[in-house]
């Protein structure tokens, strides 16, 4: 079980959180079909250090950015969005 350090609430059990995937920049509505499909479905999914969005759903309800290793599950950093 991951122990996730919420930027507001401190370390809490993984059960309290929801996973939001890799952040993606939302294209303008003028985007081509390919650009739009990439935004919807394509992510880099690296083996190793990755940037992800998480939400403390059963806690403060805030979304934040996490740097996590997808192989070892080590959590390197968590920070507020826009920080």
């Amino acid at each position: 079980m991951l122990l996730i350090p919420c930027p507001w609430c401190g370390p809490r059990s993984e059960h309290e959180f929801g996973f939001g995937g890799e952040p993606a920049v939302r294209p303008q509505s003028s985007a081509s079909d390919t650009e739009w499909a990439d935004y919807l479905y394509m992510r880099t999914n690296p083996k190793g250090r990755n940037t992800e969005l998480w939400c403390h759903s059963a806690g403060c309800g805030q979304w934040f950015v996490m740097e996590r290793d997808t192989v070892t599950h080590a959590i390197h950093t968590t920070r507020e969005m826009g920080a």
């Binding site: 609430c9 809490r12 059990s13 059960h15 309290e16 059963a58 806690g59």
Partner: peptide
């Protein structure tokens, strides 16, 4: 709940899962 004991010290409050509910 799996809440760390330190979360409910003097003047502290916490939203968490207890008995499976928020």
């Amino acid at each position: 709940s799996a809440l760390p004991a330190s979360a409910l010290g003097e003047g502290r409050c916490a939203q968490t899962l207890f008995a499976g509910v928020k």
